[in-house]
Simulated assay, not measured.
Amino acid sequence: RAMDGGIDDVGLGVLFGLGAWRREFAALLMHAEHLEAVHGVGPHTISVPRVRRADGIDPADFAHGIDDATFARICACIRLAVPYTGMIVSTRESRAVRERVLGLGVSQISGASRTSVGGYAEPEAEEENSRQFDVSDNRSLDEVVHWLMGLGCIPSFCTACYREGRTGDRFMSLCKSGQIQNCCHPNALLTLKEYLEDYASPATRERGEALIRRELENVRSPHVRAIAQRHLAAIAEGRRDFRF
């Protein structure tokens, strides 16, 4: 209905644990297939949350809860079935689980999330009773960024496609052909550079600068690489908001 109404980017996801996971998983993929068939555009993202402890809620009370191994299987199968989509895992999951599924195709994770009303305006109290769910990964954003780079990942804060109007069928054609890499890779380096300049701890900044130097050599187009180098230098001088 959203796409019929003119919204050209949608995300899918089911809360695993409420029903039989195989049925939920099959329905999720059928939904993606339906969007492709009817609109020619599959889901921009797929989220894979599972029931977690919250105020008055114990995951052990849910008969259809899934263990870590099943969760990893679900992530791997989604990546194989819908290779173009972004897959999101939140701080519902622990560091160990997130590290495992990053190697199975998860492409987006959150950091330093707060799930209570007004949680980003004021520190959350331990007895907070307005939380949507309890967070399993409580590390700061800087710790998450540092960790990701240690795993060989490039933390990206990029929103360029939305800002450039690359959504819907325009985004999907670039994504499925692999051409989106010409935007994603340099944009990831530029947005990481901004983070390092404005927010990072000294250790994270040192690791990030080394990563950027290495990854610049992996930018395939010499023309794009040269532009990225100029933008990186400008960011170091205090300018912001460059994108491909």
Rank of each mutant, 00 (worst) to 15 (best):
S116N: 11
G118T: 01
E127V: 07
E128V: 13
G103D: 12
A125S: 15
G118C: 04
V117E: 12
R98K: 06
R114Y: 09
P123Q: 06
G103A: 08
L104Q: 07
S113W: 07
A96I: 01
Y120E: 10
E122V: 13
I109R: 14
A112G: 10
G111F: 02
E126W: 00
Y120S: 13
N129M: 09
R100A: 11
G119D: 02
Q108P: 01
N129W: 03
E124S: 12
T115Q: 09
S107C: 11
A125W: 07
F133T: 05
A125T: 15
G119S: 00
R98F: 00
R131L: 08
V117K: 13
R131W: 07
Y120F: 15
A121Y: 10
G119C: 04
Q132L: 13
V117F: 15
E124F: 05
G105C: 07
G119V: 05
R131V: 11
S116K: 05
Q108L: 13
A125I: 13
E126F: 01
S130T: 14
Y120H: 15
S116L: 04
N129D: 11
Q108N: 04
R98S: 05
N129F: 07
G111R: 04
Y120V: 11
V97T: 13
V97E: 06
G119A: 00
N129R: 06
E126Q: 02
S113M: 05
E99M: 04
S110N: 15
T115A: 13
P123E: 03
G105I: 03
S116D: 06
G118D: 00
R114A: 07
G118I: 03
E127F: 05
G105E: 05
S110Q: 13
E127G: 08
I109N: 14
E126S: 00
P123D: 08
A121T: 05
V97S: 05
N129Y: 08
I109E: 12
S113E: 13
G118V: 05
E122F: 15
Y120C: 11
D134W: 09
G118S: 02
E122I: 09
A112I: 07
T115V: 13
G119L: 04
S113Y: 01
E122W: 07
A112H: 06
Y120T: 14
G105W: 01
G119P: 00
